[in-house]
Write a protein that binds this DNA or RNA. Structure first.
Lengths: 228, 228
DNA sequence: AATTTATTTAATGGATAATTTAATTTCAAG
DNA sequence: CTTGAAATTAAATTATCCATTAAATAAATT
């Protein structure tokens, strides 16, 4: 009922035609890049299917037709997002693991560190990932699962299995579950941030605090001393 | 394009009127309960908003009108689901923690154990929780966050902070992040099950294996022996 | 017989969304 | 200047889909 029929309130209803642009020689007006950013934010917040082009357009202060002008269709917009935003980030995440050598401890320290760092710098990723990869029917599931995930998952499992065989890793762990545990301790908490911030205001929980917490838990566990 | 106009294929198009029922004295026909089950399954799979009543009806081999007969509206159907399915399960989860005394180790063992047990017995929970609680805009967020979560979260935090103050808990952990970590190691992996099962077929990862893995990780950590 | 319960059929009434076409304005090149 | 290309909007097009209600029907209960 708060919805205005159509005229809405485009405070700057921008009249037709090409806008008088600062077309400096350096960069073109960058409208496309801006649209991608806005779309990414909204897709992360509401989910891809639940985000109409008209919403993206409104937030970007343009019309849906312009989205078609730049991207051709909603599907191709998603494609562009995957190619230009998701793949690069996923690749960067993968690098952290690959480059880290075969010592499991240092590999983990590097991986967790860069992971938390990258995710904090790209806060749209965790919620988007939860919706579109983790959830059944997510639109990015296939694309990301077929490319990025297996390489990482197998690498982690193999590192772990190797260490375990040599008695250097807690024998009660399942190497195949280690990758899931890693994600459950990093991407998941960041996606859940709005929830725990609502439960106990915790502005002092910085990415660095999270990193320390996760690595402490992974490397040493709770270190409970009994004594009831 | 696989969608049939309307006539669909209700192989048993059930003729009108009250069906000839086994109305045995013991239990009434149980149709309502069945509808709730079907709705729950579909809501978990596709999300609440994305599940039309017509789909629930089709899967339950009835018509949408019957859903209104029993529940009045889609909203009220969701209410019924929360009251009759979610609250009880959440409460049971909470019990596991409350009853477990104040020794942190045994509390955790009990909590993780019952949690994994209950979730495995109710596989609809993790995906539903991811969609409707974890995701922004989820329809169950408010209801569950305001009731169940704070009690649990504060309890865990206080137990942890207490233990930490007495030097009995790894000092690098943040007590407030412990609850999130617990969920990230239990509910999250179960919600992600379809993904890792697709990556490496792992039929031998039973709930018991997961429980052992999680407790091993929590209580002892990776126990890495360096040596590269 | 009469009434209540369970069910379907068949509207009803909205709402929304992606995409296309045509018009408009500015910019850049000749 | 002139002209064509680029960027934008307005308006139309087209395609659904979905919750809810009203009325009809059949069985069960009293």
């Amino acid at each position: 009922m708060t919805r205005t029929p159509t005229p809405a309130k485009p405070s700057t209803p921008r009249r037709r035609g090409r806008p008088a642009g600062r077309s400096g020689p350096g960069r073109d007006s960058d409208a496309r890049a801006h649209l991608l950013e806005v779309a990414l934010r909204l897709f992360a917040e509401h989910g891809i299917a639940a985000t109409p082009l008209s919403l993206i357009a409104r937030k970007a202060r343009v019309t849906p037709a312009l989205l078609h002008y730049y991207f051709g269709s909603k599907d191709k917009l998603v494609d562009a997002l995957v190619d230009e935003k998701l793949q690069p980030l996923s690749a960067a995440l993968g690098q952290g693991l690959i480059r880290s050598g075969h010592d499991l401890r240092s590999a983990l320290e590097v991986f967790v560190g860069t992971l938390i760092e990258l995710l904090s710098a790209n806060p749209w990723f965790p919620p988007l990932w939860v919706r579109e990869v983790l959830s059944e029917g997510g639109q990015l599931r296939k694309r990301l699962i077929e490319r990025v995930a297996p390489a990482l998952a197998h690498r982690v499992r193999d590192l772990a299995a190797g260490a375990q065989a040599k008695g250097r890793l807690n024998a009660d762990l399942d190497p195949r579950l280690l990758m899931v545990s890693l994600i459950g301790l990093t991407i998941f908490p960041l996606a859940a941030q709005p929830i725990w911030r609502a439960i106990y205001a915790a502005d002092d929980i910085t990415p660095e605090v999270l990193r320390r917490h996760v690595l402490a838990l992974l490397l040493r566990g709770l270190e409970l001393d009994d004594a009831n």
